[in-house]
Write a protein that binds this DNA or RNA. Structure first.
Lengths: 151, 151
DNA sequence: TCACCATTTGCATACTTATTCATTCGTGTT
DNA sequence: AACACGAATGAATAAGTATGCAAATGGTGA
């Protein structure tokens, strides 16, 4: 599935050095995603990654911009774009994987927005557990979060 | 000269959209720099530019990091790396071109460090004029600033 | 189930970027 | 001036990335 592969790409790029698309292809294959370079070129475009001196990097959106010019706390969309790596669903739960230290801000934003489908959140260092009433609602939330992540 | 070309590349990348190296080559040629793509590949590496969905971009160093964790004001090196685009010298003066709004911070940092060769600075929006006692000292300052810019 | 449409993917290839090697250029020395 | 030597450059080409097109895949409704 494409979205799982995108999640894996974000994780690889965030946590390891990816110099070129063929290297990415080999790393993904070890994780069970066997695709060609052509597909990765398209994925990289979709994920808006950039390539610099240190290989590929996630788009940096820098939510906290020093000068406090926002009235409210950052939105889920902002904070997900900054820290979110991976979204998964199981039963009535959604698991959000983030960059180290990103779980708390994500959970705080979710709490603040008070989505009706969300009963509660628990955040560690790099994982947020989002609890919904039932699988249907969890899928709903997963979709919405995923859309924000793919921005 | 290589450094002038680097300055021009920084300016082009900062102020206009540069999609690929051949486009950069054409834009540079209009400004009087006639070099091949091979040279630009090397320049881009030296300047640590990255290429993303929106063409080439300068390395973002983000001097003001919100959480105030530095004791003193930012150094000339830091602020130049963030805002500096171009360095030129004429007689006993050094002219520093910066990104819009970057001149004041650069001048402030220079003033704070009190370099012996620098008699004074004047800053507009995107240009800092640095005054030295004589051409020799101006060249000295130019060299030092340039080294910081090329980081 | 089957047909149908949209999406995703691979293949082949065009396009873009990096590198090797040889040459030229600039600078300091004899 | 002639020379030596390291830096910079271009030409050719290798390495890496993007894309047109056709085939495969997957979801949907008859």
């Amino acid at each position: 599935m494409k979205f799982e592969r995108h999640d894996a790409i974000r994780e690889l790029v965030a946590h390891s050095l990816v110099t070129n698309q063929d290297e990415l292809r080999r790393k993904l294959r070890r994780r069970g995603f066997a695709v060609t370079q052509a597909t990765l070129s398209r994925d990289i475009h979709a994920l808006r990654l950039s390539k610099g001196p240190g290989g590929y990097v996630l788009p940096s959106t820098d939510v906290g911009n020093g000068a406090a010019e926002n009235d409210g706390p950052p939105s889920v969309a902002e904070v997900l774009a900054s820290f979110g790596l991976r979204i998964r669903q199981a039963m009535n739960q959604v698991i959000v994987g983030t960059m180290m230290g990103g779980a708390q801000p994500v959970a705080a934003a979710l709490d603040f927005e008070e989505w009706p489908e969300v009963l509660g959140t628990i955040a560690g260092d790099d994982t947020v557990l989002v609890i919904c009433a039932d699988p249907r609602r969890a899928t709903e939330v997963e979709m919405r979060l995923r859309a924000m992540l793919e921005s």
